[in-house]
Design a protein around this nucleic acid. Structure first.
Lengths: 334, 334
DNA sequence: GGAACGTACTAGAACGATCTAGTCGAGATG
DNA sequence: CATCTCGACTAGATCGTTCTAGTACGTTCC
C-alpha cells in the first residue's frame, strides 16, 4: 500500500526537471534521446504510471470518449468491445457508463461529461435530438441515424439490410414475403419502409404484421399470421417472413413450432441482428448481421470529425448470415 | 459550447468564498442554512456541476469503485446494473472498464486505478490471486470465491445452488441424477464437488459427464450420454441431469431433441444462471437463479469493509426458477 | 564576431476542486 | 469584565500533471 510514485519522483530519480519528465512521458518533442531513455528507465524502475486525474484536469485535450450503452442490449456490448481498439487507433481513451432500467440515460451522460469526455458516443439514444444537442460536447448517435444537423451518427444501413434479406428470399424463389415490424423500437420504421418499398418495386403486395422487439411480440405476430390462414386462400399466404429482430423471430418460430408449421420447409424466416441467439444450434436462424467493428470505427471517426467541427453520418453496410431457417418455398397446387 | 462554470463562478455569484461554496456543494458541515440556500440557488442558476477530475484529484477519498466486467457475459451486465444503486446507497460512485478478447483484464484494472478507484470489483477474475493482491487497491472478487486472505469476495453459494437443483429433482421422484460439469470454467469445481457429495450422502452413485461452459460443450456431453444408453441397462441410466450452466444446457437439449428424447417426459434437465436464454418460451428451462442485487450489495459491502481493513467473504444464497424442463421421472419396468 | 536560430532544458503558473489553519463575532461561563 | 467556546466564514496551500515563457548553449550565417 505504498503511495504511488509521482512525476516528481521520476524526475528526481532521472535527475531532470518535472517538466522534462512530462515531455518524455507524453512522448512529446523537446527531449534528447539520451534523457528520454534515462527518464523512461527511472519511470519503469519506480513503477510509475501517470495519474489520469491530474492529466485530465490539466491538459487542454482529454482524448477521452464517453460511451453510453445498454446493459441488457447484447449487441451493444459487442460494439463496446470493438470501440476500445477503434478509439486507441485514433489516440482516444474510452470510458463507459451504463444505462438501464434503474439508470437513466441523462445520468450516464452527465457522469461522462463530468470526467471531461471530449465527445459522447451513445448507443441507440432514447433522449430526443433536442436534448442531446444541448450537451456541451458533441454527441455521436450509434445504431440510430439522426436527422438533426447538430448530431453525428454511425448506423447500419437498414434499407440495405432488409434488401439483403428480401433478396436472399427471392433468390430462393419466394415471392410472397411478409414482414413482422418492430413497433416503436429503434430502427423499426426504416426497416418497415424499406420492406414496403421493395415489395412495391416488385409489384407485390406488402404484408406488414404488427410486432415489436421482444420474444412475446414475435409470438403475437405469429398468432396473427395463423389467424390469417383461416381467412385467405393458400396462394395468398406468405411463404417467407422477415422479422424485425432475432428476439422476435425466436418467439415467432416458437408459435410456428407449436402449430406444427415446419421451418424452413413450409415457411422461411429471417431475423435481424445475428445475435448469439440466432447462432444457437437449436435455433440456427438466418439473420442480417450488423458489423460491430465497422460501426465502432465509423463512430470514432465521427467523433474525431465532430471535434474538428464537421458532422459525419455514416451508414455501415450489413451482411447476411445464412443458416437453416430459410429454404426454397414449398411447391404447391400451381 | 460556453465553458463550464466553475466553483469560483458560483462563489462569486453567491457572494461567498470558494471554500464555503465547496462546503455547500459537498453538503459538509460548516455553513448556515441561509447561505446554503443562496449558494445552491446560484449553482443551479449557472448550471454548475462539480468537475469530477478536480474533485478526484484533490479529495483524500475518491468514493469511486472500479468495476471490471466481461462484455460477453450476459449475467455480468445484470450485476453491473445492480451495482449502481448498491454503490450509491453507500456513497460510492461507479466506473466501468470492460474486459474481452481484445482487452485484457490487466489493462482494464490499470485504467481504473489510474482514475483513482478506491477499490476494484472484478467479476469472475481470471488473473491469479497473487497478481490481484499485488495491486495498490483492495480487490473484491465477484462470482468467484477467493481463498487468498488478502482478497475479498462476494459469490453465489454454489453448493446451495446444486442442492436446490438436486432437491427439486428428488422431490419430483428422481433418484438417478447425472451432472454435466463445466470443465475448467469458474465455479465448475465447486458445483461438481457439491453434486458428488449430495449423491454420496444419499448412497447414490454420482455420474459426472465432462462438459464445459458453452453450447457445444453441452452438445458433446449429450452425445456421451446417448452413447451410454447402448452400454447400460435402462434402469442404470439417469432420469435427470443437472447441467453446469444454461448455455451448455441448451446444447444438451438440442442433441436430446434430435435424438427424439422427450424433455421433460423422458429426461428432466436443470440449468444454472437463469439467463435470458432459459426464460425464452422456446426453451423454458428450469434453472438455478443467482441474485444480482444481493451479489451487488455484498460486493459493495465487501469494498467498504476492505477500505476499513477488514476482509469479507459473502456467499449469497441462490434460488430455483422452475419452468417446464423438469417433471417426475417416467414410470418404467419396475 | 555579433545576430539569428534551433535544441535541450527549467521555473513557476495554472487546471478546479478540497484541505488546513486560521479570523471574526456572538453568546456562554466564571 | 475578561476568557472561553463555537459556528460561520475565508486565505492560501495543495493534489499531480501540463502549459507558458522563458534561459543556456552550440551552430550557422553574413
Amino acid at each position: 500500500m505504498a503511495k504511488r510514485p509521482t512525476l516528481t519522483d521520476v524526475a528526481a530519480a532521472a535527475g531532470v526537471s518535472r517538466a522534462l519528465a512530462s515531455i518524455v512521458m507524453r512522448n512529446a518533442p523537446g527531449a534528447s534521446d539520451a534523457t528520454r531513455e534515462r527518464v523512461l528507465a527511472a519511470a519503469s524502475a519506480l513503477g510509475y504510471r501517470p495519474d489520469a486525474r491530474a492529466r485530465l484536469l490539466r491538459s487542454t485535450r482529454s482524448h477521452l470518449l464517453g460511451v453510453v450503452f445498454d446493459v441488457d442490449g447484447a449487441f451493444h456490448t459487442e460494439i463496446v468491445e470493438a470501440l476500445y481498439p477503434a478509439a486507441a487507433a485514433r489516440g482516444f481513451d474510452v470510458i463507459l457508463s451504463a444505462r438501464g432500467p434503474r439508470r437513466p440515460e441523462d445520468e450516464a451522460v452527465r457522469s461522462l461529461l463530468d470526467l471531461g469526455s471530449e465527445a459522447l458516443l451513445v448507443l441507440a439514444p432514447d433522449s430526443p435530438a433536442e436534448v442531446l444537442a444541448g450537451h456541451p460536447a458533441p454527441i455521436i448517435s450509434i445504431l440510430q441515424p439522426q436527422a438533426d444537423p447538430r448530431l453525428s451518427s454511425a448506423a447500419t444501413d437498414e434499407a440495405a439490410g432488409i434488401a439483403l434479406a428480401v433478396g436472399h428470399l427471392r433468390e430462393l424463389g419466394h415471392r410472397r414475403i411478409a414482414h413482422v415490424d418492430g413497433g416503436s423500437a429503434v430502427g423499426s420504421e426504416a426497416r418497415r419502409a424499406a420492406y414496403v418499398r421493395l415489395m412495391e418495386d416488385d409489384g407485390a403486395a406488402p404484408l406488414v404484421l404488427p410486432g415489436g422487439p421482444s420474444e412475446t411480440d414475435g409470438m403475437a405476430a405469429a398468432r396473427t399470421l395463423l389467424a390469417l390462414r383461416t381467412l385467405r386462400s393458400p396462394d395468398a399466404l406468405p411463404t417467407a417472413v422477415v422479422v424485425f429482430n432475432d428476439d422476435a423471430a425466436l418467439g415467432f418460430l416458437h408459435i410456428l413450432g407449436e402449430a406444427g408449421i415446419a421451418v424452413p420447409k413450409a415457411l422461411s424466416v429471417v431475423g435481424y441482428d445475428d445475435s448469439r441467439l440466432a447462432a444457437l444450434a437449436h435455433v440456427s436462424l438466418t439473420s442480417v448481421r450488423q458489423d460491430p467493428d465497422a460501426l465502432a470505427a465509423a463512430a470514432v471517426y465521427a467523433a474525431a470529425a465532430a471535434l474538428d467541427g464537421r458532422r459525419a453520418h455514416t451508414l455501415v453496410p450489413p451482411s447476411l448470415t445464412v443458416r437453416s431457417s430459410t429454404a426454397p418455398p414449398p411447391v404447391v397446387d400451381r
